[in-house]
Design a binder for these strands. Structure first.
Lengths: 127, 127
DNA sequence: CAAATTTGTTAGGTTTGCCTTACAATTGTT
DNA sequence: AACAATTGTAAGGCAAACCTAACAAATTTG
């Protein structure tokens, strides 16, 4: 499918970028840094990296925008996160915070196929 | 619980070491290397690392043995792997290989609490 | 047992992702 | 507009994990 194979770290960045963008119609490095608990300079690096990979457009001191590919990828990660959250929270009964933490980590390592099965499963259970 | 916080990589190593040890009553770096798809030199490094952390005993050109802590830790990881495998294989219906791959990756990131809930869940479902 | 093969180790490199520090650009405030 | 504060970037470092290449120890085998 997506032959880009982002690292967990870059997936975190693009996910954060997208959600912050949705909320604010703009993205500040400071916010990304806060959210991911990293320094502003690390955000700069990651942005450079994502731009190189063709996922965002971003020049010096410019607002970022998503490429089609970047947007799709971000949505994929977010989709994974949401279904995993539901699984941990609604089915396993973890509290909200721990469900979210687990989803955050698992979303980077679960296969697409496993995700699809999980979607069907969660939906079946909660029918 | 375990305040050691092994990296995913070191967890893989100790898991492999333990399973190979169980099977052969001894561990060769070559086998570990094959199994984890790394070079022998990387295994040497990892062993040094695990020994420093007090999980195994291992001197130059010596057989390794596990400390109590190391053995407990290995068993923990293996336990996680097994329950995750069951979940992916028996409940989600992935094929054996993909179930195993997913278990291998998720075992390093899922919380102990989530694991406990998963154990209960899988056991309840399969009652 | 001596030579050949296999195995373990070391040294030195690479990549990724983070950091700190310092500076540049932008924005906000009087 | 001028100064202050905030934000973005660049440079240089560090640690984890991996690698290759070369060598050392151990094992196999003719």
């Amino acid at each position: 499918m997506n032959e880009l194979n982002l690292s967990a770290s870059l997936e975190d960045y693009i996910e954060a970028l997208y959600e912050i963008y949705e909320k604010n119609q703009s993205v500040k490095a400071v916010e990304v840094a806060k959210r991911l608990n990293v320094k502003r300079s690390s955000v700069t690096e990651a942005l450079k990296n994502l731009a190189t990979k063709g996922l965002i457009n971003h020049g010096r001191y410019e607002e970022i925008t998503f490429t089609k590919l970047g947007e799709d990828l971000a949505k994929d990660v977010i989709k994974k996160h949401k279904i995993l959250y539901r699984f941990f929270y609604e089915i396993l009964g973890l509290d909200s915070e721990e469900a979210s933490e687990n989803a955050c980590r698992v979303e980077h390592v679960i296969s697409n196929n496993a995700l699809d099965k999980l979607i069907s499963y969660v939906e079946k259970i909660e029918k």
